[in-house]
Write a protein that binds this DNA or RNA. Structure first.
Lengths: 217, 217
DNA sequence: GTCTATATACGGATAGAC
DNA sequence: GTCTATCCGTATATAGAC
């Protein structure tokens, strides 16, 4: 792996562990055993690193969250989405811990973020409409946007919410599964009679994962 | 108003407008037309100021969010809670914009926060059970905790969610009303047949406020 | 590409006069 | 209680050698 890529991945790791604010460029360099000067050879500044991480984040969503087509099995797709959301929430925790701060320091990133989230909202709405078409949920047109916002907010801020509840701000994979359960709770409220059993099955699956022993990770 | 109180209220105002991270003790002093030294006569440090603000926040919740009793009109109480939540979300925006950061810098505050939130969770659960007893909602015991968490998370992170969606991170009172609507969306999913009309009435009320002209504040 | 050394900038906080 | 002046610590970023 190139030094540049190593810097990106070390940054993600340290940011997630200790928070973006607490990790300086010097920390990143020291943890990798390279000099600060070397880090600045590869990146213009700290924001530049974060911008590269955001690109990975966008790419992840873009790759794993393609809208489903009428031919797809809606429920199967839903399960796939949940697993992708798990990965997203886990890998890019730090981003939402300090979202306001990070965006306020980088006008360009903020613009990209806003644009991306607007497109994402439309995508989530499409998914909801597809789930309705697939007879998985019932929902009035007027409520689609509201539910989409709630889903986005939940995925974004579940990890900061959990971190704020414990002294050591560390997260376990189980915590993320609890977040996935919240997504399912939001959907459950709109389930059709015949999909309820299936969605409850998904809930049971993630509940088991959420309550698994930490050592069983 | 004493200088000490003025410092607290100026801090809240500036923190809400520009973010806690961006506002230094020097900014606060300059905005008030006092010297930095004077500010430090009244407060040990920046965290000390924030701790005092947190006390106001706790007090607000403590005063306006008393659990309802079986004698109360559950729906009337619910409407009261929503108005109090509005005030809370509006006044202490900055706190949730940077929650992780703020808590990580002050171990004592973090402990207080965690303890307070744990108690608050129990209180929200009580309220939900009272709403069930008042025949406003139906909910299985197993789902009460999950719903309570969702309500808390929504109230906490709605404002950061909205701020991240616009270039100027400023919030309008309408944005908060949209947040209240999200709380009602969560409750609506559990409404009984006879309460649905009343809850929809509340939704209509806040929808009207949310869509009102900014100048009509 | 990588290093060492260092400049710059600034926020937090204190000392001591009034 | 309030001010002025200033110190200290630290994060970011650069210069220039290798």
């Amino acid at each position: 792996m190139s030094t540049k890529d190593k810097i990106i991945h070390t940054s993600i790791e340290l940011f997630n562990l200790h928070g973006e604010r607490a990790i300086t460029t010097n920390h990143i360099a020291a943890h990798m055993g390279i000099s600060p000067g070397n880090l600045y050879y590869h990146f213009k500044n700290k924001e530049d690193i974060i911008r590269h991480i955001f690109a990975l984040y966008s790419e992840h969503l873009h790759t794993h969250f393609k809208p489903l087509t009428p031919d797809d099995d809606a429920l199967e797709n839903l399960a796939g989405y949940l697993d992708s959301l798990f990965e997203l929430m886990w890998r890019y925790q730090f981003f939402y811990d300090n979202l306001g701060d990070i965006l306020s320091r980088d006008e360009a990133l903020k613009k990209d973020y806003i644009e991306f989230q607007a497109a994402l909202l439309e995508q989530v709405k499409e998914v909801l409409l597809a789930l309705r078409a697939g007879d998985i949920i019932t929902i009035e047109d007027a409520d689609v946007t509201e539910l989409a916002h709630m889903l986005k907010m939940t995925v974004s801020f579940w990890t900061p919410y959990i971190k704020a509840r414990r002294l050591s701000g560390e997260l376990a994979r189980q915590d993320i599964y609890h977040g996935i359960l919240k997504v399912l709770l939001l959907l459950k409220a709109h389930c059709t009679e015949h999909s309820l059993a299936q969605v409850n099955q998904l809930r049971a699956k993630y509940l088991a994962l959420a309550n698994a022993e930490p050592t069983a990770q």
